[in-house]
Amino acid sequence: MTDSVLNARADARARGGQTSDWMPYLPASSSPYRPAGSEALTWAETVAPGGYTHKVLARGTRIRFDDPTGDACAHVIVYNALEPVERLNVADTVKIPWQAYLGAGHPLLSGDGRVLATIVEDTSGHHDAFCGTSTEAWNQQKYGDARPEGPSPAGRSLFVKAAAKHGLTPRDLPPSVSFFQGIQVDADGTFVWQGSAGEGTSVELLAELPLLILVANVPHPLDPRPEYAAGPLRVHAWRTAPTGPDDDRFHATPEAHRAYLNTIDYAEARGL
């Protein structure tokens, strides 16, 4: 009964306390899916298929993505939360480590010679730094529908909205990377679909600077399945320490070493 303000209020309040398959968990420590080994959680959420999320995270935050069904695809853009003009640069991210395929130890580099986040754990190994996310034009021709509010939203449409909620515009959307659905490049450059490594894999990122992260959970553009095949994506985060001289990865390669030096130089100058 919603025929009066008091009744409408009672009706609305009676809706509280319920759960759904995709929702943020507050406080984060109440997550029913708390990862083993995590510290006090600062972010816990299940992102719906075709959904998105975004968060500003402290330096040193560890972010874990879980793909419980094998059908998640986490498209990710990261920014320096203090100066979002510093953002993921996919070309530098593959060129500077001399490696196109993302995996544990791979830095996500900005265009400013710093590490925004490091991939610190990876049980999937099926990822992509070539194809970016889907556009409305792509989904229209593939699924016949690309409405952001419809059954087959494009990753870019979700990034546009996530970015807007931090005062950013489409100019601020660089190419993204994606996790949990892989492609490989054959000898003549052709992309070979690798797809998922199966259900139950995870990827963990470590925020090396104060981080704005945008996540769109939509099918990889080259997913050969005709249906909009997407599964839930779980996200958990907790506070740890950023990469420093005591970590093996700080010294792993000369390029990564100088990237971490640049990152720490920035952080210390800013008093972080």
């Binding site: 996919v90 970016g132 792509w138 993204s176 992309f191």
Partner: peptide, 8 residues
């Protein structure tokens, strides 16, 4: 867009 050029 590099990714759109390559994916298409």
């Amino acid at each position: 867009s590099v990714p759109d050029t390559l994916a298409w």
